[in-house]
Computed example of a mutant assay.
Amino acid sequence: MAPALWPRLSRVLWLACLLPLAPAEVAAELLVGNLVVSQNTSLPWPSSYLTKTVLKVSFLLHDPSNFFKTASFLYNWDFGDGTQMVTEDAVVYYNYSIIGTFTVKLKVVAEWEQATQDAGKGIVQKTGDFSASLKLQETLRGIQVLGPTLIQTFQKMTVTLNFLGSPPLTVCWRLKPECLPLEEGECHPVSVASTAYNLTHTFRDPGDYCFSIRAENVISKTHQYHRIQVWPSSIQPAVFAFPCATLITMMLAFIMYMTLRNAAHQKDMVENPEPPAGVRCCCQMCCGPFLLETPSEYLEVVRENHGLLPPLYKSVKTYTV
């Protein structure tokens, strides 16, 4: 072999050794194509798809010169969630059941017969590795609100929001007198990276309020409302319970006392029909002129009750001249 061919042969052998270790772009230099992922649901965000909805994954070979028109292809699929399959078709359908970011990997092997220098035929094989990143999201089916519906002013309130779906990108809320949807730009969005979020607020004025809540991820958006009644801190319905109970108890005790007292008084009247001496005297003094027949009888009664009174009639001395 001519000495001038050694450098060229060494270069070819060196490239052949490095080819299996080269990146996908280099390894697939003679097998060019790309993965195309599509779904019936049209989303405005790139590489974002819905869970529990069929995905169509296809491989498109770039062969404008029809160089591989006689080749047979074998496709080895890896969907990144533990599922693998081998097909002879460049199109597969797959359904992701969980949310997350997955990488679909595809290894393509092309084989065809090619004539050799000794008038024979040999099998030629070319491979290519391709991949595509997918972000599987789940639509927000709603927001579960956990929190009080009655609270005092100047008392810190915490409301927990549980999102039924993929973690939202933004959460927006505002207090309103009525439960109405939030308009664009009406509140400041907050970034959330989990399926739960806590709202805290302190009410300064009593009244009826409504939390208007809006959550949105890259797939969908949803609204929810939570009514709450705020009482003044010095006036609470429970505050009246003890005073009212005390007042009712006192009223019942007073009614029972008056009832027993009247019953005892009636019993005394039945057992002792004659009034006491003082009452009788008073009656005689006050009502004597009306009850006695003549004034002389009245004066006689008064004289008997008051021993110090002078006699009713003075003795008349008579003289004989």
Rank of each mutant, 00 (worst) to 15 (best):
Q125P: 02
G207W: 09
M251V: 13
E29I: 10
W14P: 00
F102P: 03
L35V: 13
E111D: 09
A215N: 06
R204P: 01
L19C: 09
A90Q: 12
T87N: 05
D268A: 09
T70S: 07
K105G: 01
D81F: 05
R11H: 15
M258I: 01
L43V: 11
V86R: 09
Q229W: 02
K314V: 09
I213A: 01
K121Y: 14
P167I: 04
R214T: 02
V37P: 08
A215P: 14
F203P: 00
T41D: 02
V230N: 12
S212R: 01
L5R: 04
E111K: 15
E297I: 11
I99F: 07
T116F: 00
G33D: 03
T160K: 15
Y94G: 03
A119S: 11
W77N: 07
L182M: 10
L161H: 01
A4W: 15
V230Y: 07
M1S: 15
Y319H: 08
L308H: 11
A245N: 08
A277M: 12
T195V: 12
A28W: 13
L308M: 10
N272P: 01
A28M: 03
Q117R: 14
I219V: 15
T103K: 11
A2S: 13
M285P: 00
V171S: 08
L18D: 07
V270G: 00
C17P: 01
L19T: 08
C17F: 06
T318A: 09
C287W: 12
K156W: 02
F242Y: 07
L140G: 11
Q84V: 05
L199R: 05
A16C: 06
E304Y: 05
T51Q: 10
R227Q: 06
Q266P: 00
E88L: 09
G33C: 09
Q144V: 10
Y319P: 00
L175K: 06
R8Y: 15
M157P: 00
F130P: 01
T127I: 11
R280M: 14
L164C: 03
E274W: 10
F242T: 13
F73L: 07
L247E: 06
P273L: 12
N95F: 04
N217R: 06
M85F: 10
A119F: 13
R227L: 04
T149R: 10
V171W: 02
I213Y: 09
E300L: 12
